[in-house]
Write a protein that binds this DNA or RNA. Structure first.
Ligand SMILES: NC(=O)c1ccc[n+]([C@@H]2O[C@H](COP(=O)([O-])OP(=O)(O)OC[C@H]3O[C@@H](n4cnc5c(N)ncnc54)[C@H](O)[C@@H]3O)[C@@H](O)[C@H]2O)c1
Ligand SMILES: NC(=O)c1ccc[n+]([C@@H]2O[C@H](COP(=O)([O-])OP(=O)(O)OC[C@H]3O[C@@H](n4cnc5c(N)ncnc54)[C@H](O)[C@@H]3O)[C@@H](O)[C@H]2O)c1
Lengths: 227, 227
DNA sequence: GCCGGCTTGTGAACGCATGCACGAGCGGAA
DNA sequence: TTCCGCTCGTGCATGCGTTCACAAGCCGGC
């Protein structure tokens, strides 16, 4: 009895919805107006039952014997994810990573325009990154307030990351995406997601090493960890 | 009955080990030689029992009533993750992201030196990124072979990502970290991990929207297809 | 109008991960 | 030596997520 919306959606499902959305958009662009859970599952590389269950949290939008109408489903997924309007983001730290993020067009096109990027280094303040200017951290409050920003990105060095987070919270940001390899301490009202690229490599090398070293008594169990 | 090593470690645990390792290294740098599961759990922001269970997969390295010897534990975690030697990586795509990755010192210091970065754009080949030169994709095989590279990073545009992956696989790479928002098709012998930064933002905005819209029942069933 | 083929939505079983609770074992004090 | 406090290692229960399997339901053909 999945109701249209308002229901609590499992975290694992929330993490997959953006992927479905991307695939559905590609499908629509290809001129296909209807898709089955089987086809969508193939594209996403997951189980078809999982796709159906995931989508059932949004509501009953499929048609038995037919599948899902792509355009309508896109609308529903977007609505559920809160993508019926833009979510401007502010980036703290205009170093290697901050510059790459600011220069990336994929964020704007997906609904996350960069409302501003700030740095503490006076030498960087005032420089242009594409069409946006690096501003001072002191202006964070202004940027957040005037741009209705609720998402902040921490791209400073690890040592400064907590300081950056504190300033974002003080400025009124309520969600933070953290690229620094540290655990941020924030009020419980603020959501933090952390992306640690070095960790990704470490996970890969673990499986890599495991493959190279098939020792020991028991049968080497092949762990097909592909995605 | 935790066996010393070589046995299968749950994926969730593998994903946390790098984080423990980082915290342990910081702890050692701070001159602390012994740590309890409680302290480590606090630092990592997780449950103490989880820390103990995670570490127990490596072997029995703790001392009851005392805790874990930091230096020895670091050694064991590093060994388990395959970090007793470097894992050179090769980056495909010297755009915004590729340049940021190549210029990031944190990879080398964590045991992932950049063996090379390649691009298909002749205008980029030959340019220097810090102390490494952008080389042609044609040299991928050479770089992989001469540098004993087993990990590749895909940082090309989405359209070219599959091509980049194919070339990496052909060159002999067996693990791929993919930043392009597409599902890569690779042989089952190759492990792929995908990092999609836009997805992270989408997850954040989902919870953000959910917070702003506390009431449950509201949803006109608008037909996206209403013509 | 009816039938047969397809695909959805979901109950139920299973498997993995988490967290509790406690026995086992170590170090230090008396 | 003996006892006490502390912390590990882990059995077990609980909860979440995945997958199977199938009835419900729609469409097109006849
Ligand atoms: N560059 C990468 O590819 C990469 C990869 C993985 C992780 N990271 C992480 O991302 C973060 C940034 O990496 P980077 O390579 O861009 O570093 P960087 O040193 O190039 O840039 C950091 C920037 O942050 C600014 N900064 C420092 N303290 C600040 C503060 N308190 N407020 C505002 N700005 C401040 C600095 O002036 C600098 O411009 C680091 O934590 C790093 O570990 C980067
Ligand atoms: N820049 C970011 O911050 C960011 C953020 C999230 C995701 N991404 C993703 O990362 C990828 C790269 O982003 P970017 O901003 O660096 O893009 P970019 O366009 O700046 O760079 C892509 C580079 O790849 C090269 N390239 C294209 N096809 C190639 C091929 N077949 N072989 C070798 N090189 C090839 C291009 O010449 C270019 O230099 C994209 O898929 C993007 O969606 C980037």
């Amino acid at each position: 009895m999945a109701m249209s919306s308002g229901r609590r959606i499992p975290e694992a499902t929330v993490a997959r919805l953006p992927e479905y959305l991307r695939l559905l958009t590609e499908t629509l662009d290809a001129g296909i107006s209807n898709v089955s859970s089987d086809e969508l599952a193939d594209m996403a590389g997951v189980n078809a039952a999982k796709v159906r269950k995931d989508l059932s949290y949004l509501g009953t939008y499929g048609v038995r014997g037919v599948g899902y109408e792509v355009e309508y489903l896109i609308y529903q997924v977007r609505r559920e994810l809160g993508l019926d309007h833009d979510w401007p983001v502010v980036i703290v730290g205009a170093g290697n990573l901050g510059q790459a993020l600011a220069g990336y067009g994929g964020f704007r096109s997906r609904g996350y325009p960069v409302a501003g990027i700030v740095d503490i280094d006076p030498a960087k303040v005032g420089t242009m990154l594409g069409d946006i200017e690096v501003r001072s951290v002191d202006e964070l409050g202004d940027i957040v307030a005037s741009g209705a920003v609720s998402i902040g990105v921490v791209a400073t060095s690890a040592i400064s990351a907590q300081d950056a987070a504190d300033k974002l919270v003080a400025a009124g940001v309520t969600s933070i995406l953290n690229f620094a390899p540290v655990l941020l301490n924030v009020p419980p009202t603020v959501t933090v997601r952390k992306v640690d690229l070095a960790v990704e490599l470490q996970i890969l090398s673990y499986y890599e090493q495991r493959r190279a070293e098939p020792p020991a008594s028991h049968h080497a169990r092949r762990s097909g960890t592909a995605s």
